[in-house]
Write a protein that binds this DNA or RNA. Structure first.
Length: 425
RNA sequence: GGAGAGAUGGGUGAGUUGGCUGAAACCGGCGGUUUGCUAAACCGUUAUAGUGCUAUAAAGGUGCUAUCGAGGGUUCGAAUCCCUCUCUCUCCGCCA
């Protein structure tokens, strides 16, 4: 959520940012108008309440003086004020409700170094690492490799749940676990604290990270919408300190978590229907940072570098992309995507997305820090990134490490995590 | 799931015949005095948010309002009374 004061004082900054995202800026003027009315109403309400409070104090005095006439007149004056307050309060609530709705729909203000552009074609490739492998045969897509090896079973996934659920078997399940273990070990070694959070989260938790406007499309819910299956552990990790005021020297807080993630993705029907790329349930190891304003950039870069190092260690070819304005997510002010090379698709595909959300999430989640004792608390900044998406890493390994005979070599860094197994045959 | 008890500021914990109680006291934190240093002692200070006015290069100052788990109600007035919900604790049951 954006800062009201920022919109009041610098609406042009916001309009410019919206324009860069290719969005209409009409909501800004709507907000400003409602906000002004709301403030006028609140000022009036506060004045009326002050008057009523004064009468209350006088009432106590008049009572001990025993003047019945005075009491009666005070009582009726106070009742009058009460009625006025109630009326004004209803107005104020309506203004506030509408203004907040508009405010909640406004995306984060983009960082200055986010390139212009409205879609993925304008994303800026910053660097490539590794060479796409050359095959002496026609490389197969991962679902063919996995099914042939008996480690990916899409049919039985459907039998147990429905479409877009999968069963990993044997070395496939083992590879999944090895990757989780490997990722977590590296992340913890880099100073991130491992967390095992609840997988079901309540409404406040979901709303705090700014997935509000679209969450009904993305998330599975249970208990009549009281709880949601988390779509990413970013949600839980950011909410860990919701409502808290942290000491500055406690920052940055760095967290990593392995969790299954669940996405209904109502809007994504028809995309990536085959294989492991887009599943309703997927595994992910996530990184989240809570930092000061000054430390945000460093943590964002650190998260991105850590995710990159994982790909390098796995010897998977990838490229680092800085998302353009139109492709940058709602809560983010700047996002790097890591795209891994997939021979089966002959393309780079997203395997990690690392965002700096500024104070956008922290404002709604009320995560603050005190720059120094005595000073007013400020909103923390949040950063997040996948390190990495486990399912997509399996895809990348199967496709990049496939052999002519249909077997798959295990990246050497992973062999110890596979109890020495070097190939899936 | 059944029965009971409870929820107050960073912590512990007063306050329940409704009325200068945003809230005692203690601990902790911060500033200071004392001190060769440390400790101790003493003094002061110490919630958050919204909004008005004012000020600035910034910080800020000042007024008002709100907040004693959350929401609603009674009342001229609620931390205090009533209702609903949530959570915590104890006992019983069940269970990986």
């Amino acid at each position: 959520m954006l800062d009201k004061a920022l919109i009041r004082e610098h609406p042009d900054v916001l309009r410019a940012s919206l324009r860069r995202r290719g969005q209409d800026s009409g909501a800004v003027d709507g907000f400003l108008k409602l906000d002004e009315r709301w403030r006028a109403a609140v000022t009036e309400i506060d004045r009326l309440k002050a008057e009523r409070n004064a009468i209350s104090a006088e009432f106590a005095r008049a009572k001990s003086a025993g003047s019945d006439d005075a009491l009666a007149s005070l009582r009726s004056r106070s009742s009058e004020l009460g009625a006025q307050i109630e009326k004004r309060q209803r107005e104020a609530e309506a203004f506030d409700h509408d203004a907040t709705e508009l405010l909640a729909g406004l995306p984060n203000i983009l960082a200055e170094d986010v390139p212009d552009g409205l879609d993925a074609s304008a994303n800026r490739e910053l660097r490539r690492h590794g060479e796409p492998p050359r095959f002496s045969f026609e490389p197969k897509p991962h679902w063919e490799i996995g099914e042939r090896l008996g480690i990916l079973d899409f049919e039985r996934g459907v039998r147990l749940a429905r479409s877009r659920f999968v069963v990993l078997a044997g070395a496939g399940a083992r590879l999944n676990r090895a990757l989780i273990d490997f990722f977590l070990q590296r992340n913890v070694a880099s100073g991130f604290t491992e967390i095992m959070p609840p997988l079901l989260v309540n409404r406040e938790t979901v709303e705090a990270t700014g997935h509000l406007s679209k969450f009904s499309d993305v998330m599975f819910s249970v208990e009549d919408g009281a709880l949601f299956l988390s779509p990413t552990s970013e949600v839980q990790l950011v909410n860990l300190h919701r409502g808290e005021i942290l000491a500055e020297d406690a920052l940055p807080k760095l967290y990593t978590a392995y969790t299954p993630c669940f996405r209904e993705e109502a809007g994504a029907a028809g995309k990536d229907t085959r294989g492991l790329i887009r599943q309703h349930q997927f595994e992910k190891v996530e990184l989240v940072g809570l930092s000061t304003a000054a430390g945000a950039r460093e943590v964002h870069e650190r998260i991105t570098a850590l995710a990159e190092n994982l790909l390098q260690a796995l010897e998977l070819p990838y490229r680092l992309v800085l998302l353009c304005a139109g492709d940058t997510g709602f809560a983010s002010r700047k996002t790097y995507d890591l795209e891994v090379w997939l021979p089966g698709q002959n393309a780079y595909r997203e395997i990690s997305s690392c965002s700096d959300c500024g104070d956008f999430q922290a404002r709604r989640a009320h995560i603050r820090y005190r720059p120094a004792p005595k000073l007013r608390p400020e909103f923390a900044h949040t950063q997040n990134g996948s390190a990495l998406a486990v399912g997509r890493t399996i895809v990348a390994i199967l496709e990049n490490y496939q052999q002519a005979d249909g077997s798959v070599r295990i990246p050497s860094v992973l062999v110890p995590f596979m109890d020495g197994q070097t190939h899936i045959l």
